[in-house]
């Protein structure tokens, strides 16, 4: 299935000190990465963290300001053509031509990648079938739904059987069913075909479910990296979240909970602490609230999530931490972090 024998070919991504500056804004600030062949690497971070800029550099669409990156064993600056022949990518905004049909797009992609004329038609039909677009194949893309465009984009990324695939927020804006279908396909690609997947996302669940390893990026820097389990283990203890029934009792509930652990920063709708004694501390919390005569509308024990990891590393919650959008290279950089 894969272009080259994945056991022999270099399917890795190796990045050292990668930097990208946009005039006064440093979008990516010296990141190091190592993604092994056949691995699904989740690149997690809020809007404007530097995810897409990193992907643009790794896919040779944007030259780095400094640092090095080797994709499939080739340098992204000096071996651009070889990198592009080895990778497939579905970028954040599916760049599709509304006047072409789905089949036209696949045919174009196959031609650009030098697939022999005789194989183009077979490969096109095979991929249309695979992403469930056979019926819509000969309709112009301007009539496609967002989910159909995403699926077509994924099919386009697969045309030349790349060894490495970059997916930049592939499920943003998709309904649950489309999202699940895409997850299944991504997992299959890595597991059955040995394709390396570099996936950026701002959905914690997506990274948690799909990724073998996760890198968390914030303000252009990688703040944490490891398997989802490792990262959550770093946090270790669960947190208890309480919502007072009466708003005027908020301070008293906060005081009671503070006896059992450190406050979880960033909790907005409820009061939360990371339990010092782990799960066993929950019973003591309930007793203490009862002794003080406090009634809570909701009391919940939560195991650590990747959001907790992000919170612990940055002091902010990933959900809602989205800052300004990443600078698009074609538009002038907006105000943001300054060097």
């Amino acid at each position: 299935m894969v272009n080259a024998d994945s056991s022999l070919a270099d399917n890795s991504i190796v990045v050292e000190g990668l930097v990208r500056d946009f005039k006064t804004l440093r979008a990516v600030d010296g990141i190091d990465l190592h993604v092994d062949g056949g691995e699904i690497y989740g690149f997690l971070g809020p809007n404007g963290a530097g995810k897409s800029t990193t992907v643009l550099m790794l896919t040779t669409l944007l030259p780095p300001s400094s640092g090095t990156a080797r994709v499939a064993g080739f340098d992204v600056v000096h071996d651009g053509p070889k990198v592009r022949a080895s990778i497939g990518a579905a970028l954040q905004e599916a760049a599709l031509d509304p006047l072409l049909t789905g089949r036209d797009h696949l045919r174009l992609q196959a031609t650009l990648q030098g697939i022999p004329r005789g194989d183009r038609s077979t490969r096109t039909s095979e991929l249309l079938e695979r992403v469930g677009l056979s019926d819509a194949a000969d309709r112009k893309v301007k009539g496609y739904s967002g989910g159909m465009k995403r699926r077509l984009d994924l099919a386009l990324a697969l045309v030349h059987r790349p060894r490495i695939i970059f997916l930049d927020e592939p499920t943003t804006g998709l309904d649950i069913q489309s999202r699940m279908a895409l997850w299944t396909e991504v997992a299959r690609l890595a597991k059955e075909d040995g394709v390396t997947i570099f996936l950026t996302t701002q959905y914690l669940e997506e990274a948690d479910v799909l990724a073998d390893r996760v890198g968390i990026i914030d303000q252009g820097k990688i703040v944490a990296e490891g398997t989802p389990a490792e990262l959550k283990d770093e946090i270790g203890r669960p947190s208890v979240h309480a919502t007072p029934l009466r708003a005027e009792e908020t301070q008293r509930v906060t005081k009671v909970l503070a006896r059992f652990g450190d406050p979880v920063p960033g909790a907005v709708r409820d009061i939360a602490v990371r339990l010092r004694d782990g799960t066993s501390g929950l019973a003591d919390v309930v007793r203490a609230l009862d002794n003080e005569g406090l009634i809570v509308a909701n009391l919940e024990l939560q195991q650590p999530t990747l959001d907790d990891v992000f919170l612990a590393k940055t002091g902010r919650s990933l959900e809602g931490a989205g800052g300004e959008e990443e600078p698009d290279s074609v538009s002038p950089p907006r105000k943001g972090r300054r060097r």
Partner: peptide, 17 residues
Amino acid sequence: DFETGFARRLLLASPNR
């Protein structure tokens, strides 16, 4: 093509630009 972003696909999918 550059304005609509389609050129980015061409740049990405073309080994020899």
